[in-house]
Amino acid sequence: MTYKHLFFDLDHTLWDFERNSAECLADIYEQFRFKSLNISSLDAFQSEFSIVNKYYWSLLESNKITHHELRQRRFRDTLLNLGADVDEDFGLEINEYFLGLLPKKAHLIEGTVEVLEYLLPNYELHIISNGWQDIQVNKMKSSEIHHYFGEIITNELAGTRKPDRRIFDYAVELTNANLAESLMIGDNYEADILGAISANMNTVFYNPDAITTTQKPTFEIKKLVELMEIL
């Protein structure tokens, strides 16, 4: 198969969300004086937020909540689960601080720049992300990968989010791509892989944790550099 258009997920695939988020959470822990809320462990806060955040993103991608509800609840619930007495307003205040800080972080998944340098001369590269447009763009600028990509397609632009096939259809139309020459690369099996499959797009499942899947992607890799063996 000859591909011309490569569509990448951003968070957890290229941009190291966990590492960047952990740095922001450490700052939040100090800035908002969490010790006074009887949250004595930064590790506990970071671990609980990771669990809660993934849960709310799964609800968002299933259209069970809105972006605003995610913003209101993820920090509130994290702190409630750790025994702090907080409300949605406080959770939203922390979330806005988090979203102001997060896009300034620059850590990338291992191999990202090497792979993008290898691919750029021969392919048109694009992003398909469920993140917020301005935040995703700023993440890419901070980590100095913005210039590798043509279109940055988010749910805000497409009016829908992965795994809805319409965001993939929108991406193909916007980039004037041929579906048969397009490839989706991402770490989220439901959103990236099953979503792209529903749009009849070939897929690369970046699966460092060796998650077992029921429906096989076109390709599966554990490290990004393995893309250079495929493409």
Rank of each mutant, 00 (worst) to 15 (best):
K104S: 09
E110W: 04
A26Y: 00
E61F: 04
L82P: 14
I28Y: 08
L25N: 03
Y29G: 10
S40T: 08
D85S: 11
L101F: 08
R74N: 02
S36V: 02
R74H: 00
G111L: 07
S47A: 12
S62L: 09
E110S: 15
D27G: 04
T78I: 05
L101H: 09
S62W: 00
L116S: 02
G83E: 13
L42T: 01
L25W: 02
L37M: 13
V52Q: 14
I28Q: 05
R33S: 14
Q46K: 00
F32T: 02
N81V: 04
S41C: 13
G83H: 11
E48N: 08
E69T: 05
N81Q: 13
L101N: 04
L99W: 06
L59C: 12
S36P: 15
D43K: 01
A84L: 07
Q72P: 00
E93N: 06
D43W: 00
H67P: 08
E88H: 05
R71M: 14
R73K: 06
D87Q: 10
E48K: 08
F45Y: 09
L102Q: 09
L99R: 12
I39H: 07
I109Y: 15
I39N: 14
L102H: 05
E110A: 15
L42C: 03
E88K: 02
E96C: 10
F98P: 04
Y55G: 10
K35L: 11
V52E: 12
E96W: 01
L101Q: 09
N38F: 04
L82G: 11
S62C: 11
I65G: 09
